Simulated assay, not measured.
Amino acid sequence: MARIMIVDDAAFLRAMLREILTQGGHEVVTEASDGEDAVEKYKTYRPDLVTMDITMPVMEGVEALKRIRGFDAAAKVIMCSAVGQRQMILEAIQNGAKDFIVKPFQSSRVLEAVNKAVSEG
């Protein structure tokens, strides 16, 4: 079981991910609706894993990923993207993202990515 922070500006997508993750046996410790909020909450909650939306207001997901990894080089982050964000996904992976999942979410794929990231190191 992992302690997870969900970061997405869309409340319904956070709710959908929360449902998938809790049914998969994980604990959602906090949620954030933008990158800046995510960086602050990461420092407070120190989750085992973060699911990070790429496109958000205030601070984009890739920038938040860089700041979280700057604070904690061992941070495990899985990026969430809509189809067609290939360049941003590549940038995220170059900056330490463990994996990415594409919206709309498929529970089996979400849990596969989360379980794989959590079991690494």
Rank of each mutant, 00 (worst) to 15 (best):
P47G: 08
E120H: 10
V7D: 00
V102L: 14
E40F: 11
Y45F: 15
D72H: 02
E27V: 13
I20G: 03
R18L: 04
Q85S: 14
F12G: 01
E63H: 08
A10G: 04
H26D: 10
V7A: 05
T55W: 11
M52L: 13
D72P: 08
I54A: 03
V77Q: 00
G61P: 08
F100R: 08
F12Y: 08
F105M: 06
R3N: 13
V28R: 01
N95D: 13
E63Y: 01
V7W: 00
L13Y: 10
T44E: 12
M16H: 11
R69W: 02
M1I: 11
Q85K: 12
A75H: 06
M88T: 09
M56I: 06
A10L: 14
T22H: 09
V58S: 00
L21Q: 07
G96T: 11
K98P: 00
E120S: 14
K116F: 10
R46Q: 13
V7S: 02
L13D: 07
M79N: 05
D34F: 03
S108R: 14
E27D: 13
A11R: 11
K41R: 15
G25N: 08
A2R: 00
G96H: 04
R18I: 00
L49D: 04
I93K: 09
V7R: 07
V77H: 01
A11I: 06
G25H: 10
V58E: 03
K103Q: 12
V118P: 00
E120T: 11
A113F: 11
V83E: 12
I68F: 01
P104A: 12
L49S: 13
A38M: 12
S107N: 04
